[in-house]
Every structure is written in structure tokens, then in C-alpha cells.
Computed example of a mutant assay.
Amino acid sequence: MTEISQLVDGYWEWLRDKTALKTVGQWTEITTPYLDHHNDYIQIYARAEPDGYILTDAGDTLADLEMSGCPVSRGEKRQEIFRTILNGFGVKENNGELRISANRQNFSLRKHNLVQAILSVKDMFMLASPTVESVFLEDVASWLDAADVRYTPNVKLTGKTGFDHRFDFVIPKSRNASERIVQAINVPGKNSSTSLIMSWMDTAETRRVSGHSDTKLYAILNDRSHKIPNTVPEALDSYGIGTIRWSQRAQFMADLAA
């Protein structure tokens, strides 16, 4: 077993060991080890149905955004971002709840998709700040467009585990450079960097198998309004992920435009 395989196995063991179950009426409360911006654990609820299972956040995600001053119903851009996130993970919104259906065979995958959708939607709370004039992801896209970088946005890649992982931009291979994947991290921290590392560890091998053995992943870190802990770039670098501070992005344009 390779070191990377051991690390991936260790991640899934951590995920299993740190997940807690509790019966709440007809529902099973699932407490995951993932933290939101309040440092609260993400909780979802599951219930058996005649034709499978229903997984839901019980309305917590959208209620939290409402209390944070960022209701998704306010503003066309917020609604567009919200719908894009849900569609990317196959999640539906029903009377304020984020829901997804599952069966015995795909339960783990659907649970993963719901949790990832909740984390992505909860990150929209940053749009509540009056100092944020534009979405960081849009700024990154505009920067790439200005340099005529060819890319495919919002790409979902399947990892070795069978789980899907969403990446913001994929720049195809050219005569001068290998395939490059670019992920924008609006709030660089332990959670966001760990999530990206695990996604990359899961998908890197499948990229090699599919003929992209030299694919390079770059993380663009928003240091415009956030101080980046030194541990974030250090952790990313240790897994071969190139880090680009937004304030220093000009230094890396040649690498992405090649």
C-alpha cells in the first residue's frame, strides 16, 4: 500500500470514527466531524422510506444564512450561486430544507454530497459583509478571462472512492503545459485547506489513470480581506498543491496561461 493510499484510508477511518448517530423520533441524527463558520458540527437527518432514504438538513442551513444577514432569496446573484451549488451536488431545496434521496447502494455517496452542499451553501455567509463588493470566485474568473486563459468552470471529478469533488476551473493541457486545476479559496483556513487536500488525494490518482499523470492543482487564496495562517500554504504545499496568494497572482499568470 502506498503512502497516499494509507493517508486516504486514514481519512475515511477518521470520518467514520468521528461520526455520531442519535435517534430523534422517526429520524436518525447524524453528527459529522465537519465544522461550519460558527465552529459547530454539521448535522443532518436520515429517515427510511418505502423506496429508500431521505436525507435532510432540517432547514438549518438556510435559517443560519438568514440570521447571518445573507438570505439566498435576496438578490439574483445569490440565488444563482445557491442553485448552482445544489445542482452540482444533486441536492434539492424543499420548503427551506436541503434534501437528497438515497438507496442502500448510494447512501454514502448521497450523504457525502449533502454535507458538501451544506458546507458550500454556508460559505455564502461571507456575502453578508458590506465590505464584499464581488464574489471572490467571480474575481478569479475575470482575472483568467482578462489573460485569455482557456478553462472549463465548475468541473465535477470522480475520485478513487467513487465520490464526486467539484473544482472551480480546469485548464486543459497545451503544447507548453500539462492540465491545470484551479480552486479559489475565499476563506483560507484549516477546514477549507483540509477539504481541498482530501478532495485532491481522492482525485489525483484517477486523473493519472485517465491519462493526466502530470496534472497540477493550484489553490488561489483570498488574502484581500483575510489574513492567511502560515499553516494553510504549508499544508497545501506538502501535498503538492501550488498556492497563489491573490495579492501575488500576477507572478503566476504565465503558468496558467501557457
Rank of each mutant, 00 (worst) to 15 (best):
S120A: 15
V155E: 04
L21H: 11
S195C: 01
D145H: 06
E97L: 12
P71E: 12
I244M: 08
K77W: 12
T152K: 04
K156F: 12
G211R: 06
D60Q: 07
N186C: 06
V209S: 03
R74F: 03
N94L: 09
F169K: 02
Y53H: 14
S178Y: 08
M124R: 04
D148I: 03
I81E: 07
K190E: 13
A219R: 04
N103V: 03
S120L: 07
D36S: 00
E29Y: 13
L144W: 08
R74C: 06
Q6C: 09
Y239E: 09
K122Q: 12
V232Q: 10
G75T: 11
I241D: 08
V155P: 01
I228F: 12
P233I: 10
N154T: 09
M1E: 07
M198P: 06
E76L: 03
T203C: 12
K77Q: 11
K92M: 02
A254D: 05
D40G: 02
G211K: 04
T61V: 11
A146C: 09
N106F: 00
F107R: 05
L196S: 00
Y151L: 02
D123H: 10
A46Q: 13
E234A: 14
A250L: 10
E133V: 15
L144V: 11
P172S: 02
H37P: 04
Y239C: 05
Y239A: 00
F169Q: 02
T158M: 11
D214C: 10
Q43A: 08
Q26A: 15
P130H: 05
T2S: 13
N222T: 06
I100Y: 09
V115Y: 03
T23F: 01
G240N: 06
L119S: 14
R249S: 10
S174F: 01
M126H: 08
K111Q: 15
D255H: 02
K92A: 10
S192A: 10
G242L: 00
Y151S: 01
V155Y: 02
A219F: 02
A128W: 04
L109A: 15
G75V: 13
W143N: 04
S192F: 00
D60E: 07
W27Y: 15
M253T: 01
V121T: 02
P172K: 05
T206V: 08
R166Y: 06
I197V: 07
V182H: 03
H112R: 10
W12H: 14
M1V: 10
N103Y: 08
D214T: 09
S120K: 07
R16T: 13
P130K: 11
T161N: 05
L15M: 05
T31H: 09
A219C: 03
F89R: 09
T152L: 15
E49I: 10
Y34I: 09
W246D: 13
D255P: 02
T23D: 11
F169H: 05
A141M: 04
S5R: 08
N186W: 10
F82S: 02
L236Y: 04
